[in-house]
Amino acid sequence: MRKRTQLAERLESALRWAGMSDEAITELRGDEERTGPGWQRLAKAVVDNPYPGMDPKPNSKGKFKARTLREGEASRPAMNAGLKFALEGSSLKEASYRYEYFKAIFDSEKRNIDKKYDNEGKNPPNSEKIKEASEFTLDPKTDIQGKFEADFETAKDMRGGDPVYIDPRESQEKIISLVREQAERIGMGNPLSTIYHARKHIHELPEDERENEQEQHQNKGTVQGKENDRESRGESGTVKDYLNSLAKTLKEGEIAGFERTQDGQAVHLTFRRVVEQARGSTGTASVPEDPTGRDEEKKTTLIGHLYIRDHTGAQVATYGRGSKNDRELE
């Protein structure tokens, strides 16, 4: 209970930093207890996805780092906009997903900006780059709601059918076979979860598995670039590429872990697929360019954590480059 209370306090402190009054926070929480699942879910979304300089704490001398304060001032407008976007959700759970989605868009643009300045051989203060990312999220032309709707519809079209039910009590060999056979139907459950993970992890995929996403976000001389008309047609290259890559890993990936849980009533599988690619051809966060020309190929390890339960069917919880422990298996 103490940890839940502390998490609630961290959420409320961050909301105050973003500009919400105590009255607005209380109204947002509604009838939900501070330690209740809805408020805790929102707390986890905000606390685990901090904006640069968010809700800074003083050092032992009661002073704040100037850089942290500058970064916070630069990111605060984006967090405010993200909260407004989140609160359009019909519940605290939906608001949490929307908050995470908006933050993933911000993070993606910040990576683009960092790369742009690296390519230009420039190194402005981080607060200036954060400000650019904030301005991108606030620009009506970015149309985050439009992206959200296109992503959501694509996730529903690709994985919106009935859940894939597999008996977790079957043999390991049978379970793995059934997963591989139905890989293109297995998703992440709620489309809101799917589109958040797609936006958060798309940059971790190999370049040749991001063809639709790259077409959709081609740069035309600026880091924001001109959007392809896919989104205006309700299509999302980002989600399409992400789910196609996930299916490929479920079908072809190595079984890095098979664990029976809940007294044998559930199963946790870890799929791992190692992709070799030319290091200098991508420039992505997961495979940075090597200016020395050495080490021409780089291995990227993609990890999918799949859970099979009677009440949910087969669902992937996370998919991307994986944790440090996952990558140590390379």
Rank of each mutant, 00 (worst) to 15 (best):
R4T: 13
E128C: 01
Y97I: 11
D208K: 13
A133S: 06
A78Q: 07
P291R: 01
G221I: 02
S75C: 05
T270M: 14
N212A: 13
G89I: 02
G234E: 02
E207S: 14
A198E: 00
R159M: 04
N49I: 06
K110V: 12
M158W: 10
E132F: 09
D143N: 13
K240T: 13
P168A: 03
P168C: 05
N80E: 15
A266G: 02
E135Y: 08
L250K: 00
K131P: 01
Y165Q: 10
P125T: 04
P168T: 04
F258S: 10
K298L: 12
K65V: 14
A317Y: 15
F85V: 03
G304W: 00
P288N: 06
D208S: 12
H197G: 10
A198P: 01
E32K: 00
N219Q: 15
N190F: 10
G82T: 06
E207F: 12
S236V: 07
E9Y: 10
H203D: 15
P291D: 00
E128Y: 02
N190V: 09
T284A: 12
G19P: 00
L306H: 03
I25Y: 00
T137N: 02
H305I: 09
S323N: 04
T35E: 10
N59A: 03
V223S: 04
N123V: 14
G89H: 01
T238A: 10
T68V: 11
D143A: 08
